[in-house]
Design a binder for these strands. Structure first.
Lengths: 187, 187
DNA sequence: GAACCATACTCAGTGATATGACTATTCCTG
DNA sequence: CAGGAATAGTCATATCACTGAGTATGGTTC
């Protein structure tokens, strides 16, 4: 019952098809919720049956037809109910950290390689989020945007994603360097 | 196939019972893997059947008997195999961020309350991790400990947990203050 | 001495999540 | 005009995770 609210929250930004939603969940939304397209299509079907969103068919001639979904008042009410009940902190599950936990008893080389690769990925995400932030705030300064815009939710979650990835990158770099220094490994 | 490796990685630190493991997963391990006791007991059964850990019965007189588990060479090999294959970044799922994403269209009061509560929880976790780090490194400086200890895995993951919670706290505080300033709410 | 907490663990069931294999259309490139 | 990428989506299945309800023992507290 949780992907449901993530989908509703994203659909507040406008009409989207399942396919577009999948794109969004693959990039911007992935800071706070991850889902594969199949999950999204299934969830959209359920949400529509529950009356929380409505879909409308759009006939296209240059590509396959699609269905665009909008949040209904009932959907908004569902989100409000969701936001009103205290949530539990998320459950973190990170394979790379499991490897680091065990690294003293393993060959560090593959772990170091993964840390370095992850650092690069994280750096790329930081840049992606920076671009998204700039795009969201237009030509306003961050301070002005946050004070005056009437749609700051996506900006705030993106800010969180940026911080997280920056932090992640720093940790990966630091740990990779440390492990390299302790047990020199040829590439 | 993933909780499995988290359990193995934690059992590298010594013999633990399911109950003790549950405690560890509830605090220190929760930076990188979350699991409820029932999952752990089930996983321990599976791991033992697969020969990756061995259990020995300990008869106790002041409290119920328990079984302590140790990683076998096969278990260590399993961990090595796991560490050798590149892992995907974790899937983040955070209800509180879903709420923030939608906050422009909802009553901000409960979201602000949750952000402030979360900031307090995060601050407590930072302190908990600080205590754990101090305990792990004993009277060595961090630099010395990381250079010379032969069991730095748990320290490194704890360091990551600390950074994450610190960062989380800052974001929660900032966003709560911002939302309060935008739409003044009586407590 | 009743209630409660901590230790120690089990079982049943239900959702949620992930994987893989599909269908179908149109555009673009070589 | 063949092949691939992008759009748009469906179905089936397996596994995972989580909830809730139990069992049992001993120690502590009021």
């Amino acid at each position: 019952m949780a992907l449901r609210h993530a989908v509703l929250a994203v659909l507040l930004d406008g009409e989207y098809s399942g396919y577009q939603l999948a794109k969004i969940f693959d990039v911007s939304c992935s800071n706070f919720w991850y889902a594969v397209p199949q999950q999204l299509y299934a969830e959209l079907t359920k949400l529509e049956r529950a009356g929380l969103i409505t879909g409308r068919q759009v006939i296209q001639h240059d590509r396959p037809n699609k269905r665009l979904f909008t949040v209904t008042p009932a959907g908004l009410a569902e989100l409000a109910t969701f936001a009103a009940v205290p949530s539990k902190p998320s459950s973190i599950r990170e394979d790379l950290l499991v490897m680091v936990q065990a690294v003293d008893r393993l060959d560090p080389a593959p772990v170091i390689a993964q840390l370095e690769e992850r650092a690069v990925i994280a750096a790329a995400k930081v840049e992606l989020f920076d671009r998204m932030l700039r795009q969201l705030r237009g030509d306003l300064t961050e301070e002005m945007f946050l004070r005056e815009s009437n749609r700051i939710g996506p900006y705030l979650t993106c800010l969180r994603g940026r911080r997280f990835e920056q932090e992640n990158r720093e940790w990966c770099v630091q740990v990779a360097a440390l492990l390299r220094a302790r047990a020199p490994v040829s590439r």
